Amino acid sequence: METQMGTVEDNEGNTYQTVTIGAQTWLAENLRATKFQDGSAVNTGFIPKDDDANLLTFGRLYDWHDVIDERNICPKGWRVATDNDWKLLERAIGISELEVNKEGWRGKNDIAITLKAAQPDTIFKKFNQADVNKFHFFATPAGVKLGNWYITQDMYTEFWTGSSATEKDAYARTLAYSWWNSHKGQIRRAKLQKSNMFSVRCVKI
């Protein structure tokens, strides 16, 4: 499957690479917005470890309430990817219909590495480097912010979806990067606390 690259600019002047995968066009970078489309400020949007050097690589981390705010945190003509948007992406890259609706770690044949900007070999496993970032999605291990704490940078990335699961939890997607983690080739679908701060990807409307 061929992918097509492009760019989009938000109302703050941030320019993002975009990629078309299957029938969808996605940001190929994590969101960096500090304002909604109407110019009002988001409440979260923290740079990992409060280090400006991390901004372009990892983007910003947002809680779920900013993610689903009706003022829209994405560039004009875009929206935060929903749980169903992620399922469409996962089907397009090769996750089976039997697995796509399940929770937990899903996907065979190291499918997750096709979305990662990098996936080094480890002492336990070698990866087909030709498949790394095959779809030009450029996922990076930004880690998360829980309260005042930044954790798991270079080990995990968590992407919010715009889909609520329960009063306190929403659906998210996880990619693992640590050398010791056996799920590096899979994508996790999980319900996680809305107060957590994760990365965000937008899809074109």
Rank of each mutant, 00 (worst) to 15 (best):
E2L: 14
Q4Y: 11
Q4P: 01
M5Y: 11
G6F: 01
V8C: 03
D10L: 02
G13C: 06
N14P: 00
T15W: 04
Q17N: 15
V19R: 05
I21G: 00
G22C: 11
A23L: 13
A23Q: 13
Q24R: 03
Q24M: 07
T25M: 08
L27S: 04
A28Q: 04
E29Y: 03
N30W: 02
N30E: 08
L31M: 04
R32W: 00
K35L: 10
Q37E: 11
Q37I: 09
D38M: 03
G39P: 07
S40F: 08
A41E: 14
F46L: 08
F46K: 11
I47T: 09
I47M: 09
P48F: 04
D50C: 06
D50V: 05
N54M: 08
N54Y: 02
L55Q: 02
L55R: 09
L56M: 14
T57V: 11
T57N: 14
F58D: 00
D63I: 09
V67K: 01
I68E: 00
I68G: 01
D69C: 03
E70P: 12
R71A: 09
I73G: 07
C74N: 06
C74D: 00
P75T: 00
K76L: 14
W78P: 14
W78F: 07
W78T: 02
R79L: 04
R79C: 11
N84I: 15
D85L: 08
K87W: 04
R91H: 11
I93F: 01
S96F: 04
E97P: 15
L98Q: 15
V100N: 04
K102H: 13
K102N: 15
W105T: 08
G107S: 06
I113A: 09
T114D: 05
T114C: 14
L115R: 12
K116E: 07
A117L: 14
P120N: 10
D121M: 10
T122I: 06
I123E: 13
F124N: 13
F124A: 15
K126W: 10
K126S: 12
F127T: 04
N128Q: 08
D131A: 15
V132G: 00
N133A: 08
F135G: 08
H136A: 15
F137L: 08
F138G: 02
V144D: 11
K145D: 01
K145Y: 04
G147A: 04
G147E: 05
N148F: 11
I151Y: 13
Q153N: 07
Y156I: 13
Y156G: 07
E158W: 13
T161M: 03
S163E: 02
S163A: 06
S163R: 05
A165W: 10
E167R: 15
K168M: 10
Y171D: 03
A172K: 11
R173F: 00
L175A: 09
L175G: 05
A176M: 09
A176I: 01
W180P: 00
H183T: 11
H183D: 12
K184E: 08
K184F: 06
Q186Y: 01
I187T: 01
I187E: 03
R188S: 12
R189W: 06
R189L: 13
L192S: 09
S195H: 10
N196H: 12
F198G: 01
R201Q: 05
R201D: 00
R201Y: 01
V203T: 02
K204N: 11
I205A: 13
I205V: 14
